[in-house]
Nucleic acid binder design. Sequence first.
DNA 1: ATTATAGGACACCATTTGGTGTCGTGTCAA
DNA 2: TTGACACGACACCAAATGGTGTCCTATAAT
Lengths: 99, 99
Amino acid sequence: MFVAIADPTRRKLIRLLANADELPLHELTDQFQMGRTAVSKHLTILREASLVIDRKVGRETRYRLNAAPLQEVKDWLSFYEEFWKERVALLQNLLSEDK
Amino acid sequence: MFVAIADPTRRKLIRLLANADELPLHELTDQFQMGRTAVSKHLTILREASLVIDRKVGRETRYRLNAAPLQEVKDWLSFYEEFWKERVALLQNLLSEDK
DNA sequence: ATTATAGGACACCATTTGGTGTCGTGTCAA
DNA sequence: TTGACACGACACCAAATGGTGTCCTATAAT
């Protein structure tokens, strides 16, 4: 999961699919400078992380975003979110004491 | 940033530092099976992502967590969070229409 | 029927990644 | 002052990563 979203190409794929509902591989490939094979590999990694669902329609393979698994990242983050906001609060306390 | 948190060893380092406020390299190293050099490299990557702050105290280098940069990940996620919750709502609508 | 398009499956490659061991140096302890 | 400890800085290595090009098949278009 964390590895899946670590690559900028894959994050761009996620973004493209979020804005388009469903897209075939060749249209996704048009948005990049790299070749079809490379984009396909990235989509495979996203599919293995369940971030993307694919179906075959005629001769094309269409991809759709499945953002739900990102919940795992959100859960991980939420632990630290409290942490860093608390720290900011402590800092603000220090600053106000300086007055 | 995304690369920094992609590695499980680095996430464990973050977790350890969150629970301990400040820890020297050798104590962090004790929590892993790998050697000091490897842990030090991971900490360097975390420092370059500003997720960690280090200071030298005597002969040891102590590390402290700086969780704030994780905000970037949270911001990235928030865009998709709305997205997947909306989808769940749509799915629930479909299910209720089936009744 | 023939040609063009879409894409899976490989084989292949350079670079990056995540680890090791070793050496040198500064610092604390006996 | 003599070890022992903590760590940075290398040099080094195997495996993973992110790309390429080519071949093949299935489908669509002419």
